[in-house]
């Protein structure tokens, strides 16, 4: 037989004691628009794009579980670096859009990016009144780069180094 609860005093009074105890403690609520908590460093708020690192390889767009990344790019011929060399072809990013109305915030795109062009930032205040405006283009995604936090140190016993 398990130990059943045996109240020492009438339960209603005991419960009132707990509410009274809680009443004396400071409130834990945060009055959001007036005061705000800083989100944790790892919080997945919004994705920032470092445009110069992107080669429009489409890995992120293909790995996205709901395909909310739209990439268009073209190749351009540039003059060779050395005399007599072959002309270089560089990838120019025409369009890089993330539709945050569809995004599931899984972070697969950030992980698969082989050129470190995508970063998580903990910013979260970008709600809109129109759903179409949640489609962030490469300029807006580039602006988020300012908010990318420094990688934090890891717990004791961790072997791997912090990402980036």
């Amino acid at each position: 037989m398990p130990r059943l609860h045996k109240p020492k005093m009438p339960g209603l009074i005991g419960g009132l004691g707990i509410t009274f105890k809680t009443m004396l403690r400071p409130a834990v609520t945060v009055q959001y628009p007036h005061e705000r908590e800083a989100p944790v460093t790892r919080a997945r708020g919004v994705i920032a794009l470092k445009e110069e690192n992107c080669t429009s390889c489409m890995l992120c767009a293909r790995q996205c579980p709901d395909w909310c990344i739209y990439i268009e790019g073209h190749k351009e011929q540039r003059p060779p670096r050395r005399e007599g060399g072959r002309p270089r072809s560089v990838n120019i990013l025409d369009r890089f859009d993330i539709d945050y109305a569809l995004c599931m915030y899984c972070g697969i795109c950030v992980e698969v990016c082989p050129f470190d062009a995508l970063f998580w930032t903990p910013e979260f205040e970008y709600s809109e009144f129109q759903i179409g405006r949640l489609l962030h283009d490469k300029v807006k995604l580039g602006d988020w780069m300012q908010t990318v936090p420094e990688p934090e140190p890891l717990e004791v016993g961790a072997e791997t180094k912090g990402k980036k």
Binding site: R42, A43, R44, W120, P153, A158, E159
Partner: peptide, 22 residues
């Protein structure tokens, strides 16, 4: 630890995405 309150998405095949923060 994971970056998400509700949807951690922290498991990977063969381990975890990242170690715990300090």
């Amino acid at each position: 630890a994971t970056g998400g309150r509700f949807h951690p998405n922290f498991n990977r095949i063969g381990g975890l995405k990242d170690d715990l923060p300090w």
